[in-house]
Design a protein around this nucleic acid. Structure first.
Lengths: 377, 377
DNA sequence: TTGAAAGCGCTAACAG
DNA sequence: CTGTTAGCGCTTTCAA
């Protein structure tokens, strides 16, 4: 079908090797040889067959990214950043989503396009440490997301507990005391609670408050509808909260919708904080205060790690990398100028951002985050 | 490095072909032979090298999808749908984004991962018919998006003009007369106006109104910030409109933000209609009326077309397929019960949806659209 | 500096 | 039903 090296060689009256040299910019080729070959290439419209090259070299230049749901803007934005980061290393990204199904997560990390992808960046939800340990596949794997695993793979995630505590503290500083948590998992499985829920507990306890478990509402998924439903559930329990900390922005946005329907004002009656800082959160009629992970850093770091492993760098121990984050304070918590927070371990910085009317939100490509901090353990 | 067919054959004491037969579920193999081989496969942890298979078969099972921007929820949602549709045909999707740059669009459709992807689904912005005609690459290409091309490739897009007219008519029916259009292109190039802008013009003219070009505002891009800026520009021109039709939902959302900042109420002072029906539009404090293209159908149809071409079906003429759409009427146009519209060519249906409080929006997986209509020309 | 030949792992003919 | 063999298009020794 296609034009091969051989065809070009024949046309140019040279050997295959010579053509290959030209194609690969091998330094030692005489200009006239190069010109002759190039002409043949142009005439025939030759394009190297990457599949064959890959077979020969054992690498494909393709990495996969598997996220729960591309419909969640956080993951869409992250995917975009990963694609860009990978492109800078001449890698192409194969995107898949797992719908948050354990089966698909397993499939992806076990045998997804074996030999076709050089490595995998996976953001799991249901995967267990045991699954990871049992993994056969030898290609590099980088883990993203909220969970932590005792498995020999690089993990890149912000300090979810500390970030959540920061969010809760912000609410406490505002004088709120009945702070709900929306988005714990309805886990039939006995699973450790979310790190974000743990952060909620810890900060409340640290403030001398008893975490009120009736203010914790589980959700089926992580979308806007789940947030709306959860908020309804909470309100039906009576004794409404004066603040809500949601597992992510979508849940927070759904909750705000429900609050509006019930005539409750944000932030006057109920302050709301989300998690993810998707662009949408800067644009609602009421903009959303949220924990803002440095997506660019997460994308860049995960691709860098993958590429390093791929390059066969001296195999360092698996790293646990903690990118930076900040608390983006916006209208949903009243825009009261609060001082900067910081818990002292250098992995976070809470900057007050977005004054009252963030008509021109910070551009996502020029993050104001400090350089990421690393924790290797 | 990896375990090959040969290794397995050696281990099992059979020929390569036999192993290949087992791997490929070739029907005529004795059970005991199969068992023996399977055991060797398991012991060695053999995984077929798809790259080699692809080289041999000339196909890779990978198709590419290139959209302008994954950060735009419309494209993220579409990408998700395409990935699912492709998976049903055992294809994997390589996602790329072009940032709306003509250079990258060209690159993608010319030589993107040549021989690695079997086909391409492209949603171009800047590409011209001439670029397409000049395309060297012979792999199947399906075009998505607003533009129409005189090129020999399948094109899948809703009838943008008719859909826009429907939106404008809805605004007219509400008694609005000063209807702005936000999001025309700031085109240095001499390009035909957007089809959506054309729809705006046509419907106004049909209603006996003179399209007021001072109500048309160009934008640099297609994001929320662009919408906010455009709305500001419009308001600064004085004589505010009583309705806005935006090129897409993001621009509409940005515009609503600006309206809120200026103390203008939606829909009382200004009614707003968007285009795309991203999920976010069902969840703002003021939900957005918008043209809702059947994304599932668009994804399914484009993958189907690609797969058909790939399967070497008798090469039919390039098709121009028009999936269904509807007008999702929500709060931003006042939720006034309006009758159903329809322009008679069977490619559209305007259903009034989403009553006052769409706390539970229609599930994206169960579209209420009619079957898609096809126009072959 | 360029040519010849081997082989990456697999499938598809064709034998046996 | 199973084995042998010849490439798919490329890179990479090794010679010349």
């Amino acid at each position: 079908m296609g034009v091969s090296l051989k065809d070009v060689a024949q046309r140019a009256g040279v050997s295959i090797k010579t053509v290959s040299n030209v194609v690969n910019n091998y330094p030692h080729v005489t200009p006239q040889m190069r010109a002759k070959v190039q002409q043949a290439i142009d005439e025939l419209g030759y394009r190297p067959n990457l599949t064959a090259r890959h077979l020969r070299k054992g690498r494909t230049g393709i990495v996969a990214l598997a996220v729960p749901e591309l419909g969640n803007p956080y993951f869409a934005e992250l995917a975009g950043a990963v694609i860009d980061a990978a492109a800078r290393h001449d890698y192409t990204v194969l995107v898949d989503h797992t719908a948050g199904l354990r089966e698909r997560e397993l499939l992806v990390c076990q045998e997804f396009r074996s030999h076709v992808i050089d490595g995998l960046i996976l953001s799991p939800i249901h995967l267990e440490t045991a699954d990871l340990v049992a993994r056969q596949e030898t290609s590099p794997l980088v883990l993203l997301g909220e969970r932590e695993y005792e498995a020999p793979y690089d993990q890149i995630a912000i300090d979810n507990v500390a970030a959540s505590r920061l969010a809760v503290r912000h609410l406490l500083d505002l004088g709120r005391s009945r702070i709900a948590f929306l988005g714990s998992r309805t886990s039939r499985e006995r699973r450790p609670a979310h790190l974000r829920l743990r952060g909620w507990r810890e900060e409340l306890t640290a403030a001398g408050l008893e975490p009120d478990e009736t203010l914790v509402v589980a959700t089926e998924g992580y979308g806007r509808a789940d947030g709306a439903t959860a908020m309804t559930t909470l309100l039906e329990r009576g004794a409404p909260p004066d603040a809500v900390f949601a597992y992510n922005d979508l849940i927070a946005i759904g909750a705000m919708r429900t609050l509006a329907e019930h005539g409750l004002r944000v932030p006057d009656d109920v302050a709301v904080v989300g998690f993810d800082d998707i662009e949408e959160s800067s644009y609602g009629t009421i903009t959303l205060t949220t924990v803002s992970p440095d997506k660019q850093a997460i994308a860049r770091l995960s691709v860098d790690r993958l590429v390093e492993r791929l390059a066969g760098k001296p195999v360092s121990e698996p790293l646990r990398i903690r990118p930076g984050y900040r608390l983006a304070v916006r209208e949903s918590t009243g825009s009261v100028p609060t001082g900067a927070h910081g818990s002292g371990n250098g992995t976070e910085n809470a900057t007050r951002t977005d004054p009252l009317l963030p008509a021109t939100p910070r551009h996502p490509d020029t993050p104001s985050h400090p350089d990421t901090a690393r924790h290797e353990d």
